[in-house]
Computed example of a mutant assay.
Amino acid sequence: MLIGRSVTAAALLALTTAACGTQPGGERTAPSQSPPPSAGAQPASGSSAEARPACAQPAEAPAVPPSATASASASPPAGPDGRPEQHGDGAPHYAENHAYRMQASLTPEKRAWGAASAKLVRAELEKVREAGGAGEDGAFPEERVAAALARLGCGEEHGVHISDGFCGLHTGTVCVSGRVTRDELTTGVHGAYAEPQPGTGPCVENRGGH
């Protein structure tokens, strides 16, 4: 009888321990609605490795669509026309010579948050375009573009860079780049560059060479 009571007590103790940390009814705590951690690249040093505060965040967490694992990998650097560069198998040391142009990889979750941020950025740039006042080259004054991004809480601490209609910033999760001129309005989402253009932000491609 003593042995039987000991076994019963042990079983009750095990059940009690397993129940700890579980909400009544077996419910689990809802996932966080905050954006994922920064997707900046991770070089030994440089601005793209720094954690940045959030800006241009949607009011509600975006839906993350199902995606293949391959979509979370880093994309090859794009050429001047925006298409991935083709370098073939015969280019020796291509990867190491162009490592400075590599972008941080984006998970489907980070890409979803980036797309939501890009939508907000595009809306502000559209206001700049609709107001008119472009210069002779078709670009709008940098001050106006900066003011548009500031309305989304994006400033110097977010690596904002504006030049000749181009703008780039880090939302704290991803890079959002865009171009607004009299005849053009585009936005895009990508990871921070391993070695961005010196004197700019983490979202500006380095046009130099190694």
Results as ranks from 00 to 15, higher is better:
S47N: 13
A41L: 07
V64I: 10
T69L: 14
S45W: 11
S67P: 11
P53A: 07
A54C: 04
P62H: 01
S71R: 14
P58S: 00
A39F: 10
T69M: 10
R52G: 01
T69V: 09
A59H: 10
A39V: 02
R52T: 00
R52A: 02
A70S: 13
S47I: 15
A59G: 12
S45R: 15
A54S: 14
E60I: 00
A56L: 13
A59N: 08
G46F: 06
A68C: 06
A49W: 03
C55N: 09
P53V: 02
P43N: 09
S38F: 04
S47C: 14
P65L: 04
P43G: 09
E50V: 02
R52H: 02
C55L: 08
S47K: 14
Q42I: 04
S67G: 06
P58D: 01
A72I: 01
S45Q: 15
P58N: 00
Q57I: 13
A54G: 09
G40M: 05
A59I: 04
S67R: 10
S47A: 13
E60K: 05
A44P: 13
G40R: 05
P43F: 05
S67C: 08
P53E: 04
S67Y: 05
S38K: 03
P66Y: 01
Q42Y: 03
A41Q: 02
A41N: 07
S48F: 02
P53L: 07
V64S: 07
A41F: 01
V64D: 10
P53W: 04
A56K: 11
A44L: 15
A56H: 12
P66D: 05
